[in-house]
C-alpha cells in the first residue's frame, strides 16, 4: 500500500515508458510522407477515426514508447517509435477544412505506412 509520502514521490518523479535503444532506427524521418492505416480494434487504440486512411507528413520523431493498443491488454514490453504526424485540414475534412490550417497528432509505427508516390493527374 502506498503511503502519502510514497504517492507524492511517485507524482513528483513521474513515469514514462520511453526507452533508448540505439540498435533500433526509426522507420520514418521528419519530412517523410506517410499514410495512416485503417484499423478498428475492439480494444484500445490511439489512432482516432478522423485520421485513419489519411496522408500526412512526419514532423518529429518522439522516440520509442509503449504501444497503447497492446499495453491496454497487458503487454508492458512492446516498444515502437512514436512520431508527430501533420495533416492538412483539407485532407481530414475535405473542402470544409481551412486551407491555412493543420492538425498534428502522435502516431506509432503500427499505425503508419510509407505514402505511395502521388499519382500524376
Amino acid at each position: 500500500m502506498l503511503s502519502a509520502a510514497d504517492i507524492l514521490d511517485i507524482l513528483a518523479t513521474g513515469a514514462t515508458t520511453r526507452i533508448e535503444d540505439p540498435a533500433r532506427a526509426p522507420a520514418f524521418a521528419p519530412g517523410d510522407e506517410v499514410v495512416t492505416r485503417t484499423l478498428s480494434p475492439l480494444t484500445h487504440t490511439r489512432l482516432p477515426r478522423y485520421c485513419r486512411g489519411k496522408r500526412g507528413v512526419v514532423v518529429k520523431v518522439h522516440g520509442l514508447y509503449a504501444l497503447p493498443d497492446v499495453r491496454a491488454i497487458g503487454d508492458e514490453e512492446t516498444r515502437e517509435y512514436c512520431y508527430a504526424v501533420r495533416f492538412d485540414m483539407r485532407e481530414l475534412w475535405g473542402p470544409q477544412g481551412a486551407a491555412t490550417d493543420s492538425l498534428t497528432i502522435d502516431l506509432w509505427d503500427s499505425y503508419l505506412l510509407p505514402a505511395p508516390a502521388e499519382a500524376t493527374p
Partner: peptide, 30 residues
Amino acid sequence: VRDPRSVLAEFGTVLPATTEIRVWDSNSEV
C-alpha cells in the same frame, strides 16, 4: 480539430485569415 477558428472566436481570439493554425491532438505520452 475540425474548425479551430470558430472555437478560438468563442474565446474571443480572432486571428488574421492568413495565420496558420496548428491543432495538436495530444494522444501519446508527449
